[in-house]
């Protein structure tokens, strides 16, 4: 559904996207991960027909984004990372404006707008002026706006950025619903565990280059083999560090005040042995716990050193 071939975008001397090759199947959800300025938004802008690539090609639904932008626009719903809303328009009028912009007949609009507002849980705000809505509501309204013409592809640039945890969960639920509807979604985010829950594939981009591309289940299995053990001590955390940092399966250890963070790749029996060692040496261990599956850690490990 989405394909880029050696896609390159240059701003003067700065190379924003470098020889990017992507292939996203129809109906799949692709998570685009990378630090700020990595080229995520640029790639998405090119796919949304808002920017011309310096070289290479990008196709959506088989149409070249530079040669057939009109056809591509029919297929896509694009939500930028930052977008504004118009003053003096209510939520219904806002959606009606975009429905008009997508040539949707007037008589079909009221029912469509009602459905969309229901989908994004904004029915109660139908007659509220859009500039009075909260950030989360605006973001959801933006998503409803993307869906006005029932596009096959959704290009969502950091849809959860700047939202509070509750709004993030709401946004995530809506995206899951859209995935169930069979939309092809390309979504970028900094919050990797959230992406992992709903994406089929995740691609990591840094300095304009795609440095890792893997199905989520593969990454998840890597996460499973990589634990972070949080050991809280009453005192002598440094001493504890000295005793464990050289051990087998300990890839890294950090002292943070009275807490020792151990990056551990061994099995559960090894964890028991590690705790016994600390206790036998008379260290006052207050708690010993495994941190929840830390996708970010794995990603940071994968991306480490690439950008520098």
């Amino acid at each position: 559904m989405i394909r880029t071939v050696n896609l390159t975008k240059r701003y003067g001397k700065f190379l924003a996207v470098n020889q990017l090759n992507l292939h996203i199947e129809q109906g799949s959800v692709f998570g685009f991960v990378g630090p700020n300025g990595a080229g995520k938004s640029t790639t998405m802008s090119i796919l949304a027909t808002l920017m011309e690539p310096t070289s290479g090609h990008a196709y959506v639904g088989g149409f070249d984004v530079t040669k057939d932008p009109d056809k591509v626009r029919q297929l896509i719903g694009y939500m930028p990372d930052f977008f504004g809303v118009y003053d003096n328009l209510t939520a219904v009028e806002y959606l009606d404006f975009y429905a008009g912009a997508y040539d949707i007949p007037k008589e079909k609009r009221p029912a469509l707008i009602q459905d969309l507002l229901e989908l994004v849980n904004l029915s109660m705000k139908a007659d509220a002026y859009v500039d009075t809505l909260s950030r989360g509501m605006k973001q959801r309204l933006g998503l409803a706006r993307c869906l006005v013409h029932d596009p096959q592809v959704l290009i969502l640039d950091e849809p959860a950025s700047g939202l509070d945890p509750r709004a993030r969960i709401e946004m995530k639920d809506i995206l899951k619903e859209l995935k169930a509807m069979g939309k092809t979604i390309i979504i970028s985010s900094h919050i990797l565990p959230e992406l992992a829950e709903m994406c089929d594939t995740i691609g990591i981009i840094e300095q304009g280059q795609l440095i890792a591309l893997a199905p989520v289940d593969q990454i998840a299995s890597r996460v499973a083999g990589h634990r972070v053990l949080r050991v809280k001590l009453l005192e002598r955390a440094q001493e504890a560090y000295d005793q464990v940092h050289y051990l087998e399966h300990v890839t890294n250890a950090d002292v943070q005040e009275n807490t020792l963070l151990i990056h551990y790749t061994g099995d559960e029996a090894g964890q028991v042995a590690l705790l016994s060692k600390l206790v036998q040496n008379g260290l006052p261990v207050l708690s010993f716990a495994e941190e929840a599956g830390n996708l970010e850690e794995v990603f940071l490990t994968v991306t480490k050193g690439v950008g520098s």
Partner: peptide, 13 residues
């Protein structure tokens, strides 16, 4: 400035 032009340009207008 309102960051609405890009959205407008991705419509059929």
């Amino acid at each position: 400035e309102r960051q609405t032009l890009n959205i407008l340009l991705t419509t059929h207008l």
